Amino acid sequence: MQKNLMIYGSCVSRDAFPLLGPEYKLLTYVARQSMISAMSKPTDLLQGDTLSSAFQDRSLAGDIRSNLLQLVRRFASDIDVLVIDLTDERLGVVRLPDGTHVTRSHELVSSGRLKAVQGRTQDIRILTERHWTLWEAAATRLLGALSQLGLREKTVILNTPWAEMTQAGDPAPPLWNFDTAEVNAYFNECCAHMRSLGYKVVDLPAELRYAAVDHKWGAAPYHFGDSAMAWIAGQIQETAAAAA
């Protein structure tokens, strides 16, 4: 019997999808959209040309429109499993002069659209008190909306702490100037909040938290190996079985 999947997160979740087999269908994939941005109002301040990559253009346009809940509502009756991971929260957000927030993604920055904004913008980085305040409120609203749509039992949230080592035993490549332990502690707090709202959060086992040395998207502390991807696929299958 076919199972329908929606992913809200990053390549951490998306890369596990092919392991699920032909009985799973991916309804839609929302990436590069912080919960803060997703629960913000859409903005008209970031007009610009279409990006050359269809995926990047779709992600940026969706983030600017804050379209996550629109997509969830569209597919709610068909969703068997909703997968959420927090990896893209690493990007932080930008507060725009109209009071809205957008994810500070590579796509947004490289598009040059921020430079054309008239008025003051503010970068709000992860690990700051301001980010936490905005994120906690956004997560509470989002999960409340998912519960109203009957999706709580169909949702699995992945807590995938960043790797400190590669599979070869070398230090995992750093990301920007982040301290991996601080990022992991922050994501743990985020996941604890979502658990407190009655949602299923699963923790990637410590023995699988290794950065792949040959990952197709390059080296990063959140680009895990095949064993971690297999574990994620297993969690999706368990959620689907429990919700059936």
Rank of each mutant, 00 (worst) to 15 (best):
A228T: 13
L208S: 06
P161D: 02
H215L: 11
H106F: 05
D80K: 09
P221S: 09
A230D: 05
G119N: 06
R141C: 11
G112I: 12
L91G: 01
D63R: 06
H223E: 02
C11E: 06
S66V: 05
D78W: 02
L143Y: 15
L69G: 04
D63S: 12
R58K: 04
P42D: 06
P174T: 12
S147R: 14
Q56M: 14
D44I: 04
T239G: 01
S111R: 04
Q70R: 09
A16T: 14
G234T: 12
L51G: 13
L26H: 04
E89W: 01
T50G: 02
S147E: 14
E238Y: 09
D214F: 00
D170P: 00
L158A: 05
A244R: 10
Q47V: 13
A220C: 14
G62T: 07
D179M: 01
R130I: 06
R120K: 11
H101I: 08
E207D: 14
M1V: 09
S105C: 07
Q235Y: 08
I236N: 00
V202P: 12
R125G: 00
G9A: 13
G150R: 04
G144P: 09
C190L: 13
S59D: 13
K41Y: 07
Q70G: 14
D226I: 02
L108Q: 10
P18A: 10
L127V: 04
I236K: 04
G150H: 03
L108T: 03
C11W: 09
R65K: 15
L69R: 04
D88Y: 00
G99W: 10
K3R: 14
Q122E: 15
A163T: 13
L71E: 12
W135S: 10
S13V: 08
S34E: 06
T166R: 00
K200C: 06
A139G: 01
G198L: 08
D57Y: 02
A206W: 00
Y210E: 07
S52E: 12
G112H: 11
G144D: 11
T239E: 00
L142M: 15
Q70W: 03
A54T: 06
I124G: 02
N4C: 04
S40F: 02
T140A: 15
V183R: 03
M1E: 08
D123T: 13
S10G: 00
I126F: 01
W231E: 04
Q2M: 14
R74S: 07
G9Q: 05
A192V: 01
L27W: 04
L26C: 15
S105E: 06
R120V: 09
I232Q: 10
T87M: 11
A244N: 12
T28H: 12
V202L: 05
I7T: 12
L197I: 05
A137L: 11
V117Y: 09
S111C: 02
E107C: 06
A241M: 03
D44C: 10
R14V: 00
D226V: 10
Q2P: 13
G62Q: 08
L91Y: 00
I79K: 09
V72P: 12
L127Y: 01
S52K: 14
M1Q: 07
Q235E: 15
R90V: 08
